[in-house]
């Protein structure tokens, strides 16, 4: 089974592009102290707003900090927020979905009405509302994104669970005396894991986008810690004469989100049992 998936993965160009980009980005983030030519917080007021050159690959910002170094460090923030927020959302959404779908009745109705209520609010608005009451820092951003983006997954998992729980192997498992938690996590969970994986991958891209937007608005990661979002904020003020300050962080966000989306879409095709060969 795994061999087949690996074969399909290699044949899927988009997924390959996506994962290659993510791999390179993750390596850069992981080894950033050894890669960056300047410390990301090091100011050099003599070299303010330098355009890209050999000395400063992507130019410098208004305080003379090296943009390339800052973007590399920013990738750490983006990836951390992406993975942690999605982990929270995935654990929570999967659990709620499984319980809701399997037990049905009032448990299902209650949980799904809560999901409906949360879905009434535009996600970004909801996050803005919550973050306004909290101290804007990276930890809060991750938690808030995590706990506001599990609803879609919960619905997805619930739907899958509803169809799988009627299958005969669940009845067989019950007839052999397996306990309810075992049926949920040993038998049902592996059957719904493919859509969860796809949804989580797409979710990382989305979480990175939300983090950047929050930081751009000044409600996310606070300066001087570099984040793609707050670098963009600086760039906005100088957009007429320092184009590199807006373009490069923008491209970073674009390509990262694109990479996760390509990987997610690719995984969807790869894990689809109906797809050919």
């Amino acid at each position: 089974m795994l061999k087949l998936y690996i074969k399909r993965f290699i044949q899927n160009k988009f997924a390959l592009w996506g994962i290659s980009f993510i791999f390179i980005l993750s390596s850069l983030a992981l080894f950033s102290p050894f890669i960056v030519p300047y410390a990301p917080l090091e100011q050099n007021l003599l070299e303010r707003l330098q355009s890209p050159s050999i000395l400063h690959l992507l130019g410098t910002d208004d305080l003379g900090r090296d943009l390339f170094s800052r973007l590399i460090y920013g990738s750490r923030i983006s990836l951390t927020v992406g993975f942690v927020a999605v982990s929270i959302a995935t654990l929570f959404g999967t659990f709620i979905g499984l319980v809701s779908g399997y037990f049905g009745k009032w448990i299902d109705s209650t949980l799904m009405r809560i999901v409906d209520i949360l879905l009434c609010f535009p996600t970004f608005f909801l996050i803005l509302m919550v973050i306004a009451f909290l101290e804007p820092n990276i930890l809060n951003v991750m938690i808030v994104i995590g706990f506001t983006s599990w609803t879609g997954l919960a619905r997805l998992v619930r739907g899958e669970t509803l169809s799988f729980k009627e299958r005969e192997f669940i009845l067989a498992a019950k007839s052999l005396g397996l306990s309810t938690p075992k049926i949920l996590f040993f038998h049902l969970l592996p059957n719904v894991s493919a859509p969860i994986l796809v949804s989580a991958t797409l979710g990382v891209g989305n979480a990175i986008l939300i983090e950047s937007s929050l930081s751009f608005l000044g409600l996310g990661v606070q300066p001087p810690i570099p984040s793609w979002g707050n670098i963009l904020t600086t760039g906005k003020d100088y957009i007429h004469f320092a184009w590199w300050l807006s373009l490069f962080p923008g491209l970073c966000i674009l390509f990262t989100v694109l990479a996760f989306n390509l990987l997610g879409e690719g995984l969807r095709d790869i894990l689809d049992p109906r797809s050919q060969n």
């Binding site: 089974m1 005969e168 192997f169 009845l171 067989a172 052999l176 005396g177 592996p190 059957n191 894991s193």
Partner: peptide
């Protein structure tokens, strides 16, 4: 009753394909 299922009384179903979990 859960402790009796599988331990004291077990059942085999008609279709061995659908009564085994396909992904384990």
């Amino acid at each position: 009753i859960r402790q009796i299922r599988g331990k004291e009384i077990a059942i085999i179903f008609q279709d061995p394909f659908t009564s085994l979990n396909p992904v384990i």
